[in-house]
Write a protein that binds this DNA or RNA. Structure first.
Length: 357
DNA sequence: AAGCCGGGGAG
DNA sequence: CTCCCAGGCTT
């Protein structure tokens, strides 16, 4: 893909397939700025409900600057990211007070307005002033990583820097086409090069797109690395006597809430209090620990078998029961507990580390 | 560099 | 439920 071929092909595509009737597609820096702020991390369909009301109430930057902040926030209510509204109001006052009521025309100067970062400033400069500045939003990152096969998560500093450089190298030569080109970048990402199931058959770059040619549109852009889950540790007690094992109903809230389970010793140690409850017996060697993964943490479980000399008295309610492993499984237990009970009933003396879910 | 902001849509 | 969206600001 030649860099100089990118913009003309994209603009030609946009002329026939792009969006041309969005209400903020006007040559007015105030309305462009307002729409760009509203569209930050917010989908077009949502902004379409708010933007008309806002420009009706505040037709120009002077009237916005003169309004009380509460009224601005009220019109923003429901859009989310309310610091955008506060910054919007501050920026309007800055335009009036510091720039004489006229928006600055360069990307660099626009970036001094609160709430206007590099990409938003570039969008305003390109749409309103034909500046040869590139945007780099989520749509553009997706298009560029796919077409040019850029590896790595775009949130990573080096990857993002490379994308800015790449995006700048693709700008059209003639400044007059900057509005159409910028809109085309957004439109391609929003309507064709979508996050899932992109419409590559309708894409002007399909023949050159690295992701499409390698059938890797699902892998590019690379997803955010998953956060390392916090680790918790627990000992699950396998108290056995006469072919039965002690089960305990867990508290209603929290992990495995309300389910029957093996008694859990939080500290990872076999406590004296627990042994006393069970009377006398023999503590057997612990089984190998294994990991159970939850959505928000991982639990390292140490199964601790104990052969007790007699069955402790059954509690009045059903919070504690001595059951055969088979009956316990039947009662409904969490998956890792079921695996342990299965190992117990099959007479296995140790559990493989491969137990996990 | 990572966390935060927020409501909503898609899968 | 997760992940992301026309990102920017703070720590």
């Amino acid at each position: 893909m030649q860099a100089q071929a990118f913009a003309p092909r994209l603009i030609a595509w946009q002329a026939l397939n792009g969006r041309h009737d969005l209400p903020w597609q006007v040559n007015d820096p105030y309305r462009v700025w307002l729409s760009e702020i509203m569209l930050q991390q917010t989908q077009v369909s949502s902004v379409l409900e708010y933007y008309p009301r806002f420009v009706t109430r505040f037709p120009d930057v002077q009237q916005l600057a003169a309004a009380p902040q509460e009224e601005v926030l009220a019109l923003w209510s429901g859009l989310g990211y309310y610091s955008r509204a506060r910054n919007l109001h501050r920026a309007a006052r800055m335009v009036v007070d510091a720039f004489g009521g006229r928006f600055p025309e360069t990307r660099e100067a626009l970036e001094t307005l609160p709430g206007v970062g590099r990409s938003t400033a570039a969008a305003i400069a390109a749409f309103a002033f034909n500046a040869r500045e590139t945007i780099l939003d989520g749509n553009v990152k997706r298009v560029l990583t796919r077409v040019f096969g850029v590896e790595g998560w775009p949130g990573e500093r080096n990857v993002e820097k490379a994308l800015w450089t790449l995006a700048e190298s693709l700008l059209p030569e003639d400044a007059a086409s900057m509005p159409a080109y910028t809109q085309a970048l957004m439109d391609l990402g929003a309507t064709c090069c979508t996050r899932v199931r992109p419409a590559c058959t309708r894409c002007p770059f399909a023949a050159d797109c690295v992701a499409h040619q390698q059938a890797r549109t699902a892998e590019l852009p690379a997803a955010r690395p998953k956060k390392v889950q916090p680790t918790r540790y627990a000992t699950l007690l396998l108290a056995c006597h006469g072919g039965r094992v002690l089960l305990e109903r867990r508290p209603p809230a929290g992990v495995w809430g309300g389910l029957m389970s093996l008694p859990e010793l939080p500290a990872g140690e076999l406590s004296e209090a627990w042994l006393a409850q069970l009377g006398t017996g023999e503590v057997l060697p612990a089984w190998p620990e294994f990991v159970h993964v939850f959505t928000h943490f991982k639990l390292v479980i140490t199964p601790q078998p104990v052969e007790v000399d007699a069955l402790a008295p059954r509690a009045a309610d059903d919070t504690r029961q001595w059951l055969t492993p088979e009956a316990a499984i039947e009662a409904g237990v969490p998956t890792p507990v079921r695996r342990l009970l299965e190992a117990l009933s099959s007479g296995t003396l140790s559990v493989s580390h491969q137990i996990s879910t």
